[in-house]
Design a protein around this nucleic acid. Structure first.
Lengths: 143, 143
DNA sequence: TTCAATTCCTACCAATCAACTAGGATATTA
DNA sequence: TAATATCCTAGTTGATTGGTAGGAATTGAA
């Protein structure tokens, strides 16, 4: 499994916030209840998302979380990288890593670069808005 | 990191065997020495590759391992799946898994399917022959 | 003004997994 | 028969995963 619960739960949370976008702050408990997840665990996951500026928080009663920008401006790659770190297949093609000394004659590295590129293309092309659209398409078939 | 040492070392081993293709059996110790890896660890990794029929083994003195078919017939996806299991981003899109009940209205699943598809396309398109070609291109620049 | 709701923060914990090592049995060739 | 290999099972150590626990700080509403 490429994504751990961190990335998967994080995506679910962010989708929930995207569905709620424009309707004010949403308490974490509501998100946890909707997704049947532990709210204390989700707390840990939303913290880095807030620190990275993807979500804003309001403390106290009637507080909660909301997206800091429009769903169309948040790429799923942003979310995944914050929660999972780099999705590179190997360290030598991970962002910010020092290149290994064999880079120029390493054929496996070429392979890793191709895999990384294809993954990054997908997760940086799809935004939360796309997921919201998918959600509505999947759940409002009868309308 | 998507690939653990199992997949990465496995790929290196198989590339080494591909470079040696047609020249008879290659003992594991030689592979380990060339790659500066632990031969006892590599032993564990080559075992499933043999059981899956990707490599043949010859026991005893002058024995070793060799590819069971041409490098062009072995996809890197074959190797990775044997050593790492499925590269699916989440269980619900992993081969052989029972679909989760929310499949039809789950927007995150759609995302996982797109990621999985792009990864599979890459690793099932590239064969060991491609890696051998890359290797020669990268290491014989002066020729 | 006080209470309930909520975010925020640190620490802990159990179970699993990753990356090996160890030791020996079995097979083959020189 | 000695050396070279594969083959097989088990153990070991450290990190990671997927949480829980407890409480401090903040805010809105009664």
């Amino acid at each position: 499994m490429i994504l751990s619960t961190r990335g998967r739960y994080g995506l679910k949370m962010m989708l929930e916030l995207a569905l709620n976008y424009g309707k004010g702050a949403m308490p974490l408990k509501d998100i946890a209840n909707k997704q049947s997840l532990s709210d204390t665990y989700l707390e840990q996951l939303i913290s880095p998302l807030r620190k990275s500026g993807l979500v804003n928080s309001t403390r106290g009663a009637q507080g909660g979380y909301e997206l800091s920008k429009q769903p169309s401006e948040i790429k799923v790659g942003d979310i995944i990288r914050i929660l999972e770190g780099s999705l590179a297949p190997a360290e030598c093609v991970s962002e910010g890593e020092t290149e290994c000394s064999k880079a120029d004659y390493c054929a496996t590295r070429l392979l890793y670069e191709k895999i990384a590129e294809s993954i990054n293309t997908v997760i940086d092309t799809i935004t939360l808005k796309d997921m919201v659209d998918d959600y509505h398409r999947l759940n409002n078939k009868t309308k």
